[in-house]
Simulated scan of single mutants.
Amino acid sequence: MTYPHQMLSAEPHDRLGEHRNDQGWLDTRWADPTSRVLVVSGTRVRPVEGALPWVATDEAPDGVRVLLGERDGTTSWAVIVGPEAAASQEGEWYPLRGLLPALAGGTRADAPLVFHALGLAEWHWATRHCPRCGGALASRAAGHELRCTECGKTQFPRTDPAVIMLISTGEPGTDEERCLLGRSPQWPPGRFSTLAGFCEPGESLEDAVRREVAEEAGIVVGEVAYFGNQPWPLPQSLMLGFLGRAVSTDIQVDAREIEDARWFTRAEMRDQAEAGTLVLPGGISISRSLIEHWYGGELPGQW
């Protein structure tokens, strides 16, 4: 079975990491008329008629040049310019979250490239000074390294592991089995999702699942099994999906990150989703995949 979250990573590109420090090779590929460029202003992109605006290299502005890689014989790049570029041009520029509808549609094959580009753009935007001495940073390795001009220390892009989990209780596959969903205080009425949180230093992923569920909903989790993952550079996460089995069922929400959490049977989930009183995550998220995997099929409605 292909799950919804896999749509956005189904066609990965060759990242050509072995060429990032070969300036002659980079110059040759940049001069190739078939190469294409995604212009990123700060951390935003401007779609044109719902599609991503890839341009030829001779049409790209000056900026930080980032080699994304190659797919189907075409070399793709990003050029990162300051956020003022978006303010000075017509049209609306969107961060990654605003581009997800376009990526889930006709430009889905470009999703890994866009995730790559905006993940690096976010890192360049957030990493302004050397954490060791405070010196200025210079881009190296086709945008994939930042080297301090004072002490020479090199910085590399970050990826923060985050766990996202569907917790269930009751006899698996029966009408009595239930799964746990929660909601943030900031969400509109009826919106629920799987629980999630970041892995802490020195912590295994399985223990992160158990800790987060205990902290947010007061549920003790025993067995934990890996489900899958999804790159989620919002701004720099890798969502690692898990299935867990609860050994307690008394919910006690933390009232900060989670304002409500509930157990749902499959029948309750289906009936409430059909009625619109339960609104589940979007179809491209790993949260949706976890829910539909447990449910055993597609469900109506989404954010």
Rank of each mutant, 00 (worst) to 15 (best):
residue 5 H to Y: 05
residue 6 Q to K: 09
residue 8 L to Q: 12
residue 17 G to I: 02
residue 20 R to M: 08
residue 20 R to N: 04
residue 22 D to P: 13
residue 29 R to N: 04
residue 30 W to E: 00
residue 30 W to I: 00
residue 31 A to S: 14
residue 36 R to H: 08
residue 49 E to I: 07
residue 49 E to C: 02
residue 50 G to Y: 07
residue 50 G to P: 09
residue 53 P to L: 06
residue 62 D to E: 15
residue 63 G to E: 07
residue 64 V to P: 01
residue 68 L to A: 11
residue 69 G to P: 08
residue 71 R to Y: 05
residue 72 D to S: 05
residue 77 W to Q: 09
residue 78 A to G: 08
residue 79 V to L: 03
residue 80 I to V: 14
residue 85 A to F: 13
residue 86 A to Q: 04
residue 89 Q to C: 00
residue 93 W to Y: 14
residue 93 W to A: 13
residue 96 L to H: 06
residue 98 G to H: 07
residue 100 L to H: 04
residue 100 L to G: 02
residue 100 L to I: 13
residue 109 A to K: 14
residue 109 A to Y: 12
residue 112 P to M: 13
residue 112 P to S: 14
residue 122 E to K: 10
residue 124 H to C: 13
residue 128 R to V: 15
residue 131 P to K: 13
residue 137 L to P: 05
residue 140 R to N: 01
residue 141 A to L: 06
residue 142 A to I: 06
residue 143 G to C: 09
residue 143 G to T: 09
residue 144 H to T: 09
residue 145 E to P: 00
residue 146 L to M: 11
residue 148 C to W: 08
residue 148 C to Q: 11
residue 148 C to T: 09
residue 152 G to D: 04
residue 156 F to S: 07
residue 157 P to L: 12
residue 160 D to G: 08
residue 164 I to V: 10
residue 165 M to G: 05
residue 167 I to Y: 01
residue 168 S to G: 02
residue 180 L to F: 12
residue 180 L to R: 08
residue 185 P to F: 00
residue 185 P to I: 03
residue 185 P to V: 00
residue 186 Q to C: 02
residue 187 W to S: 14
residue 192 F to P: 08
residue 197 G to V: 08
residue 203 E to W: 13
residue 207 D to T: 03
residue 208 A to L: 11
residue 209 V to P: 09
residue 215 E to Y: 01
residue 219 I to Q: 09
residue 222 G to D: 15
residue 224 V to Q: 03
residue 227 F to Q: 05
residue 230 Q to W: 04
residue 232 W to Q: 00
residue 233 P to V: 06
residue 235 P to W: 04
residue 238 L to G: 04
residue 238 L to R: 11
residue 245 R to V: 15
residue 247 V to D: 12
residue 253 V to T: 15
residue 253 V to L: 05
residue 258 I to C: 14
residue 260 D to H: 11
residue 269 M to Q: 06
residue 270 R to W: 14
residue 275 A to R: 10
residue 275 A to I: 06
residue 275 A to Q: 13
residue 277 T to M: 01
residue 281 P to L: 02
residue 282 G to E: 12
residue 298 E to Y: 11
residue 303 W to E: 13
residue 303 W to Y: 10
